[in-house]
């Protein structure tokens, strides 16, 4: 699974970067979103995948079927690492905030300057 995740992360980051290097503002925002997805998945993968139960204590028997091994063992039960999950949860919310902000910024830029072309929006030469 980790190998698959790593390849997926590479794809998301690569496509995201490709979009980030564009001139069109919408495509740049889309690029940042893809990069956010990729990074979140990377964080999760760095804590190893499917090594135990979800970090919910006192789980029922249904969960037992989905157990793996090699996770954090507490009271004889293996759990997946909760720390990356906590970090990602924060990152998802912040990602939403930045996406919302970039979209409104793009919207306002188009309104003010009548273009969404970054090359056209360049500043003046340095004096």
């Amino acid at each position: 699974m980790e190998l698959l995740a790593a390849l997926l992360i590479g794809l998301l980051l690569g496509v995201g970067t490709y979009l980030l290097l564009e001139r069109n503002m919408i495509r740049i925002v889309l690029g940042t979103m893809l990069i956010t997805y990729g990074t979140n998945l990377m964080l999760l993968t760095s804590g190893r995948l499917k090594t135990g139960r979800a970090p919910l204590l006192g789980g029922s028997d249904i969960q037992t079927a989905a157990e793996g091994g090699g996770g954090i063992v507490v009271d004889g039960i293996s759990y997946v690492d909760p720390v990356p999950q906590a970090l990602i949860l924060t990152a998802i919310v912040i990602g939403l905030a930045t996406t919302a902000f970039s979209f409104v910024l793009a919207y306002r830029t188009v309104q003010e300057y009548g273009t969404d072309d970054l090359l056209e929006l360049r500043g003046v030469e340095h004096e």
Binding site: E2, L3, A5, A6, L7, I9, G10, L11, L12, L13, G14, V15, T17, G38, M42, T45, S46, G47, R48, I72, Y79, D81, P82, V83, P84
Partner: peptide
């Protein structure tokens, strides 16, 4: 950058980034 992401993920998989004691 894509290759970087893949390689970093795989490297991180071998080395534990988060000490298990914390979790």
């Amino acid at each position: 950058v894509g290759a970087l992401g893949t390689v970093v993920t795989l490297l991180a998989n071998g080395a534990r980034l988060f000490p298990p004691q914390v979790a």
